[in-house]
């Protein structure tokens, strides 16, 4: 079973998304960008489901740091944010993000399908 690490400061949102993925993926959640790297070491995710608006370090700073580590090449980043329409999808894809999803429109089925396509 592939593993998904959800990075979202909204605990209830992360829990809810996690539950909708649990029948097809192993899921863990963290609430800040700072908590991601220790969680990667421990959980070894295949996917990072990343919100763009986070506490502490912002997601862009985090993304730049993430892509600078070559040992994390195998972890696919899917950005899922309510600000998805306000950011340039192409810019995110260009720096290595695998997919950009809109929190205001995505359904559990579509999310599962996206992750399965990226496997």
């Amino acid at each position: 079973m592939k593993r998904v690490l959800i990075v979202d400061d909204d605990k209830w949102f992360a829990e809810s998304v996690g539950k909708s993925l649990k029948h097809k993926f192993r899921v863990a959640t963290v609430g800040t960008a700072e908590a991601v790297f220790p969680a990667i070491e421990k959980f070894k995710p295949d996917f990072l489901l990343l919100d763009l608006v986070l506490g502490g370090k912002n997601a862009v700073t985090f993304l730049n740091e993430f892509i600078s580590y070559d040992d994390l090449d195998g972890v696919k980043i899917v950005v899922m944010s309510s600000a998805a329409k306000d950011v340039l999808r192409e810019d995110l894809l260009q720096i290595g993000v695998a997919e950009v999803l809109d929190k205001t429109e995505i359904t559990p089925e579509a999310l599962c399908q996206t992750l399965e396509t990226l496997k």
Partner: peptide, 20 residues
């Protein structure tokens, strides 16, 4: 608008979860 979006997104997600 942005601040009110966050709880609305959560409400939508919770209702999707509730239906299942």
């Amino acid at each position: 608008a942005h601040e009110l979006k966050a709880p609305l997104v959560l409400l939508r997600q919770l209702s999707l979860q509730l239906a299942r």
